Simulated assay, not measured.
Amino acid sequence: MESKARVIFHIDMNSYYASVEMAFHPELKGKPLAIAGNAKERRGIIVTCSYEARKFGVKATMPIWEAKKLCPNLIVKEPDFDKYRSVSKRMFEILKSYTEWVEPVSIDEGYMDVTEVEGNLHPLKLAQAIQDRLLDELQLPCSIGVAPNKFLAKMASDMKKPLGITVLRKRDMTHKLWPLEIQEMHGIGKKTAEKLKKLGFHTIGDLAKAPELTLKVALGVNGKKLWERANGIDRRKVDPESVNEIKSIGNSTTLPTDTEDLHTLERVLESLTDRVSKRLYTRGYVTEGVQVTIRYFNRKNTNRSMTLARPMYKTEELLPYVKKLFIENWNEDPVRLLGVTATQLVDKKSVTQQLDLFSYEKDEKDYKLNETLQQLYKKHGKSIISKGVDKPK
């Protein structure tokens, strides 16, 4: 590494869900495996697949029927999110045994600042040791990018999969990074890539060589940031506390008069949930938890929360859980104030693909939720709760 430069690792687990399943079921190793919702149905969507399956052309977002057409021997399993979260926790514990400077980005990737790691072990030997340990203790393969900053480390980890260790220095950029297509640059989505191509920028090198002002005019603040990244400039530090910077997003309202009218309370919950949903969207977060606050006429408070099955932010997804919490914990006394809070926030960018692909879970989760709602109907009557708004945001 260059002298006085930070030494940043980006750890990226390879085919994480499929790899976890293989770790728990060794008989699956070496076989074409896909993780998909509605695994027994043709309309199910592939979330991820093993490298053995990829050799046949199987990939994420592909319907099961199409995947099996390409790979008749494809093994398809339903996802087990509790297991994936549990293994992820163990994975990050291993990373933190090397340094406290570990920043989780999502369930299967994170950054490490290993500049001050004791022992003065060469970065490549340290990366190899970490990779070997994850493989030995968890049976999970990973790729590691080694670079002087987070952006270059992220780009490096994508260059060799599975089980790759790639060093990307600033002096390597002209031949390793700049020839890549613009859409391969971390931080550039489909729409931004299309806009840049219309402006004549087709490679990362085109972006790096462009006048900074041109990009600022075209893309505003984001244009300056992308220009800096393309030139290997990234001042962000590895921040172990970044996931806790914003812990919750909530809204509450005091009712005009204390009320025990179920219809009124239901409408208030819908309005509050919609406002929380909009704030989540605006700030770029999804939530893995939700909390409901009830303040009664005598100013006594009740706060109840629950963890969601998957990250979400839309009103129609959150509302059934909000209403379930309220109905199960309301003592039927007059209510003075209601509050809805999204907890356990996650950066939407880190789970964008999951949000797009996990919609298949909706049928199963709605079925379980409807069973609970039916029990509540029997106890309180049908007017107590409705499933949610029909119109998507």
Rank of each mutant, 00 (worst) to 15 (best):
S97C: 03
S97L: 08
S97F: 12
S97Q: 03
Y98I: 08
Y98N: 09
Y98A: 04
Y98K: 00
Y98M: 07
Y98S: 07
Y98H: 09
T99C: 10
T99H: 01
T99S: 13
T99M: 00
E100R: 10
E100T: 12
E100G: 15
W101G: 02
W101F: 12
W101D: 14
V102D: 03
V102H: 04
V102T: 03
E103L: 05
E103P: 00
E103G: 04
E103C: 08
E103S: 07
P104V: 04
P104L: 03
P104E: 15
P104R: 03
P104M: 02
P104H: 02
V105A: 05
V105C: 03
V105S: 02
V105Y: 14
V105P: 00
S106G: 12
S106I: 04
S106D: 10
S106Y: 03
I107Y: 01
I107A: 01
I107Q: 00
I107C: 00
I107R: 01
D108H: 01
D108K: 05
D108N: 07
E109Q: 07
G110N: 13
G110A: 08
G110E: 12
G110T: 12
M112L: 15
M112E: 05
M112P: 03
D113P: 11
D113C: 07
D113F: 08
D113S: 11
D113M: 02
D113T: 14
D113K: 14
V114R: 08
V114A: 11
V114H: 07
V114D: 04
T115D: 09
T115N: 11
T115Q: 09
E116N: 13
E116L: 09
E116Q: 11
E116C: 04
E116G: 05
E116I: 03
V117K: 04
E118G: 08
E118R: 12
E118M: 04
E118K: 13
E118V: 05
G119S: 08
G119I: 13
G119E: 13
G119M: 06
G119D: 03
G119L: 09
N120Y: 13
L121T: 14
L121A: 12
L121Q: 15
H122Q: 04
H122D: 15
H122F: 02
H122A: 15
H122M: 13
H122I: 00
H122Y: 15
P123R: 02
P123V: 13
P123M: 14
P123D: 15
L124P: 02
L124A: 07
L124E: 05
L124N: 14
K125V: 04
K125C: 07
K125Q: 13
K125G: 01
K125P: 01
K125T: 10
K125F: 05
K125D: 15
L126R: 02
L126Y: 07
L126N: 10
A127R: 04
